[in-house]
Design a protein around this nucleic acid. Structure first.
Length: 555
RNA sequence: GCGCCUGUAGCUCAGCUGGAUAGAGCAACGGACUUCUAAUCCGUAGGUCGCAGGUUCGAGUCCUGCCAGGCGUACCA
């Protein structure tokens, strides 16, 4: 619809210039917007105001000239008006709306998609929780955001790969191994001193029991280092398997699980460091090896190899991100917790050092989740092992409610997640409000199948012509907006735009439902309205699918 | 100190990359079920968009400076 108006305006501007009414033939881009106020019409443009300087004319005068040269628009535009400092407002013919619906069943589950990716390869890396414990709610938000962003980009024509990076190397894995090994020894009757910096959670004891089930008492006979590594490997594998299952239960799957350790095993980290030595991007100071990240805007240089010869976490990160780009991704997107924001400059610096445009590396920083129960904060201490796991939350409130709520805020804002509210099947809980639309329409369609209203999936011009009440038009206008919302969500990587759109569309539908009966005595009207609500159902389902939320037939 | 994020109705938040008179939900108050699902709808009320400047025809939106809150600022991961 906007494109048609844009075309008409461009045509009018050209004709006005040819007729000598406009001095310049240089025209700015045409922005069409939807006014907030109904009296300002269905669409409006600031076109006349934007070109005022160039044309050296008053905006309102230009608007008059433009509207006078609008041509061939009678069946589309009922009325134009010039308002304020020079807006042109367009009132669309009520009958012009309904035919737009035909695009929805025509595209079906692809409705809303625009090919802005054009097959370009994008990687979205998310969750990537350390395999030292189960996922908690914060990871759940990252999972919901990452998965939805990946869905949206894929829907919009990108070739998307989802990846989970496993930090299965370094000191924390040793700590995990030690924690489990100590609990294992205690289990076998040895007196052990359990240090405070070991993982305290109950799941560590559980892992120790499983370690015993698998290996019996054989680890006691091994040397300390060997036993520790056995314990660490066993525990990490178990935990990763648990994380993978938790994510499956949450509706999230990955194309690849990438091991940090593999970067060391393949010699990739060492090669990376060597190449930086060769190109002089690293230097020695105080016995350590430093990377010149300040050259790319970081506030200080960063250590890649410590004085004791061990590499830092940053070293493998450098190698990892270079490896990503070598795999051919045009864009590499990492979803991180907001507490990691300080790492962006150094990773960007490392990417730039490898001769890659750092803008191709993007980070989505997801703010933290405050878990509440009935308004009261739930204790979340990782160190003490007291935290509510993602699995607990999914079991308690359900996958759909959890995922939807995670996406009801811009990710840059902290989120209060109240378990009691998430369980409520009321207006407080928007997921049911949206899903209810789908179920209600499914119910109408079931009923219609038993009526002589005829087939509903073909557009009947007479039926469409019945869709001319203000309620019909309001609903159609909502549906027409959907593709633009998807495009904006993809460009900005902001899934919450779809969430809010769906809540608004749901409101428009529920309102319609209470005002207009779909199945009425007149079969032609019934047909038209059934066609309309079926289109609503399709858009609701498409949107929910992008968010990873189900669209139920019954509730 | 420095860096990033945030500040919009009593509460929780949107605001389509600068448009016209500021938008929802919750909470409050008053209404609507003999009907395709009341997990719904309709109405009333609620605002100095943190503060102060600046940019221009026009600012919640962009720029600068303050104020407040969160997070970060390791040869930790």
């Amino acid at each position: 619809m906007k494109d048609r108006i844009r075309y008409l305006l461009a045509d009018a501007a050209r004709k006005a210039h040819q007729a000598g009414a406009l001095p310049s033939d240089v025209f700015p881009g045409i922005e069409i917007e939807e006014p907030k106020i109904e009296a300002h019409g269905d669409y409006a443009t600031n076109f006349a105001m934007v070109m005022a300087k160039n044309q050296k004319m008053a905006p309102r005068r230009i608007a008059e000239i433009l509207t006078a040269h609008l041509d061939g628009a009678e069946d589309l535009i009922a009325e134009t008006a010039i308002a304020g400092p020079g807006f042109i407002n367009f009132h669309i013919q009520p009958a012009a709306w309904a035919p737009l619906l035909k695009a929805i069943p025509a595209a079906g589950e692809r409705f809303g998609a625009a090919d802005i990716g054009q097959g370009r390869k994008v990687q979205v890396e998310f969750v990537s929780s350390n395999p030292t414990g189960p996922l908690h709610v914060g990871h759940g938000r990252g999972a919901a955001v990452g998965d939805a962003v990946a869905n949206i980009l894929a829907f919009c024509g990108y070739d998307v790969q989802r990846e989970y990076y496993i930090n299965d190397s370094g000191r924390q894995i040793r700590t995990l191994g030690l924690s489990v090994l100590l609990r294992y020894k205690a289990l076998l009757g040895q007196a052990v001193d359990f240090p405070e910096d070991c993982y305290q959670g109950a799941y560590i004891r559980e892992l120790a029991r499983e370690l015993h089930d698998r290996h019996g008492e054989t680890l006691l006979a091994q040397e300390e280092e060997a036993a520790l590594m056995s314990s660490a490997r066993f525990a990490a594998e178990k935990i990763i398997a648990g994380i993978r299952q938790d994510l499956i239960d949450f509706g999230v799957t990955f194309d690849q699980w990438f091991s940090e350790q593999s970067l060391y095993d393949s010699g990739r980290v060492a090669a990376c460091i060597q190449s930086f030595r060769d190109t002089g991007q690293v230097y020695e100071k105080d016995g350590a090896l430093w990377f010149k990240t300040t050259a790319c805007g970081d506030e200080k240089d960063r250590v890649v190899v410590r004085g004791d010869g061990r590499t830092t976490y940053f070293a493998s990160d450098i190698a990892y991100h270079q490896e990503k780009f070598e795999r051919g991704f045009e864009r590499v997107i990492d979803v991180w917790g907001a507490d990691h924001h300080g790492y962006i400059p150094r990773i960007k610096a490392s990417v730039a050092s490898a001769g890659i445009d750092p803008d191709r590396f993007e980070v989505i920083l997801v703010q933290l989740v405050n878990l509440l129960r009935g308004g009261a904060p739930v204790a979340m201490s990782t160190r003490a092992g007291e935290f509510v796991t993602l699995q607990d939350v999914v079991n308690e409130v359900g996958r759909d409610a959890a995922r939807f709520i995670f996406l009801t805020r811009h990710y840059a804002n902290p989120l209060d997640f109240d378990l009691e509210v998430a369980k409520q099947k009321s207006n407080d809980n928007p997921v049911y409000y949206v899903q209810y639309v789908h179920a209600r329409i499914a119910s109408i369609r079931r009923k219609a199948a038993n009526m002589p209203a005829g087939p509903v999936d073909d557009a009947d011009p007479a039926g469409l012509a019945c869709l001319d009440t203000p309620e019909d038009v309001a609903l159609i206008k909502h549906l027409v907006r959907y593709p633009a919302v998807v495009t904006a969500a993809a460009r900005q990587m902001e899934p919450h735009r779809i969430t809010f759109y769906l809540m608004n569309l749901a409101g428009a539908f529920h309102s319609y439902y209470n005002k207009q009966r779909v199945l009425v005595d007149d079969p032609v009207t019934s047909h038209g309205r059934l066609y309309l609500v079926t289109a609503v159902q399709t858009v609701i389902r498409n949107g929910l699918t992008l968010l990873g939320v189900s669209a139920p037939e019954r509730m």
